[in-house]
Write a protein that binds this DNA or RNA. Structure first.
Lengths: 341, 341
DNA sequence: ATGAAAGCGCTAACAG
DNA sequence: CTGTTAGCGCTTTCAT
């Protein structure tokens, strides 16, 4: 552990060069793995750098003909604990591959509480000229970032995107996930089921389609209904009311994610319908919410760490061309909310 | 909406200068609110910029003798929905004041799932030379960032820090918060209470001290106990077991935050103690968890938006010197978990 | 193998 | 008021 003697500004490449008695360029070479540097000089430089506590300035590096080793991870928002797992797994894989990462949030909540692109963050990211981009979660207005995705290899994780120029979309295999759920419910002897999907997001649409397919496959036919609700509890309540007034209450409700499921449970219970007594409920994502004993929600674990590492993998492989869609196989976590008993 | 004609690289200040028939410097002046630019030239420049789709390169700006208008918001982690509110409120205030913001996460989860400083993020942030720093939440290893906090006006929000050189620490007034809780519990006729604090964090310690003071104030004397647990459910269970084996079960347990409270409830119910029937429980933070009907946890709302804006305010006022500690007054949100009835 | 020199995009004195 | 000239810290030809 050595201290750098100059108390004011951080040392620059020039300071190191002077200390080592070599030129700037040589220092740069050493720090960028240049092969053709004499062992002696290399040592001198490294030693001087250590002595001074020199760290290359990333901003300068990026300005000067973009460095190709920093990957930006754009997180949809700071709310969703889900994303944290994906991000850390992706980062771990990237670091392993010798890449630097910059993790920034893509959206902020404006005054109305709705998410909007964080233009400041995006602008800085753009100017940093990252070598790659991983977008985690559904980002509203992601299409506006076309100038980025067109230039920079981009992978979308845990979201869907139609943009032609993303290297890969890595997400949970909704078909398998919903099949697991429907099969489980069928096993419990359920005969009428309903799906409560979300807002207009593509993920929601995909899960809805997956539900319809799974329901058909398991012979539910007309006994499978679909309702929509955004993620607010108020809206879940509305959707449930809808379901209730349509006559018969389904014996099970499949929510597109855990948050919606909790809204559904709340709405059902507020209406005097007990869960799982009178109606089973399942979620998707297997967030920590699902595991809380009082909630004990059967949910689909999408294996977020695998999604994250697969996204990183896809990006690293992007040199070899488009990867396309990577579907990560989920597994069902059965809890109290789906045991009629 | 105009397109820039050059399909390859984004336009630079030079392109704009050429297009407008002026010098680089003039363009720079126009974009930095220079007063002494003739109206005509200014228009020409603005028009050329618009035409080309020019956006100043922030990285270049920051490299070239630091711009003084970008504030970095360092978020402890991506898990805690709490922070999202603080961040967005702080950002809103900053934007209002004409500041740019960069929101980055300060920590990542390593393989063990424990949080560590995200050195990449920090390094980039440092090199960007932000004009100010707002650290949101307790960041492990924050002390290692001393070189930053020593140089850059820093405000800590929703955490405590002893570093001498932070401009301000903005946090919930724990004393008031816990007094509200204890008073409420006393009103319910509770005679023995216990506090379950957390890991070794300063916030936890502060709330524990606040609890002791409030308990004394409300005449609990020896009937107030303290137990510790980290935020895992397993540990909450252990702490509760501890409490149970100490003989009498307290009539109410005050948890240092909502997450711990939920662990406590789970542990109590697993031990056959009903909440709120046999024991009342309260939390702190008023997260969305508390509002879930099945949880219905009485909690202290710290008013995160005010914490965020106050932090921004303190930073903006930092020119006028150290602000010190800003305590934001919380309010109690009473829910089912604290109604013996 | 090494150094000199020319930028990356921008700002900031400094002259005109 | 406007243009010229130096850099910010680093990479990268291009000579040597």
């Amino acid at each position: 552990m050595t201290e750098h003697s100059n108390p004011s500004k951080p040392p620059t490449i020039r300071d190191v060069a002077r200390e080592a008695g070599v030129s700037k360029s040589l220092v740069s070479l050493v720090f960028n793995g240049g092969e053709n540097v004499s062992e002696e000089r290399r040592k001198r430089v490294l030693h001087a750098a250590e002595l001074l506590g020199y760290r290359p300035n990333l901003v300068a590096q990026s300005l000067s003909a973009g460095r190709r080793d920093v990957v930006a991870i754009l997180v949809a928002n700071l709310h969703n604990p889900l994303f944290a797992e994906i991000v850390s797994a992706a980062k771990a894989r990237l670091v392993e591959a010798g890449q630097r990462t910059l993790i920034v949030s893509a959206q902020v909540d404006d005054d109305d509480g709705s998410a909007v692109l964080d233009r400041d963050n995006i602008a800085i990211l753009r100017d940093l000229r990252p070598s790659g981009l991983i977008a985690v979660g559904t980002i509203r207005g992601f299409a506006e970032l076309a100038d980025l995705t067109a230039t920079i290899p981009t992978v979308v994780a845990s979201a869907m995107d139609t943009t032609k120029d993303v290297v890969a979309v890595v997400r949970s295999d909704d078909n398998t996930g919903l099949d697991l759920v429907v099969a489980h419910l069928a096993e419990q002897g359920v005969e009428q089921i309903a799906f409560i999907g979300g807002d207009g997001s593509r993920v929601s649409a995909s899960r809805e389609a997956a539900f319809r397919a799974a329901a058909a496959r398991h012979g539910f036919g007309d006994n499978a209904r679909v309702e929509r609700a955004d993620f607010t509890e108020a809206d879940a309540r509305r959707a449930v009311a809808e379901l209730l007034t349509q006559g018969r209450l389904p014996q099970a409700i499949i929510a597109m994610n855990d948050l919606t499921a909790i809204g559904v449970i709340s709405a059902l219970e507020a209406a005097g319908v007990s869960v799982p007594g009178d109606c089973l409920v399942t979620g998707y994502d297997d967030t920590m919410l699902a595991a809380i004993p009082r909630i004990s929600l059967t949910s689909v674990d999408p294996d977020n760490r695998r999604i994250g590492s697969a996204a990183a993998e896809a990006l690293l492989a992007s040199a070899e061309g488009r990867v396309g869609e990577v579907l990560v196989t989920p597994r069902l976590v059965v809890r109290g909310s789906s045991h009629a008993a």
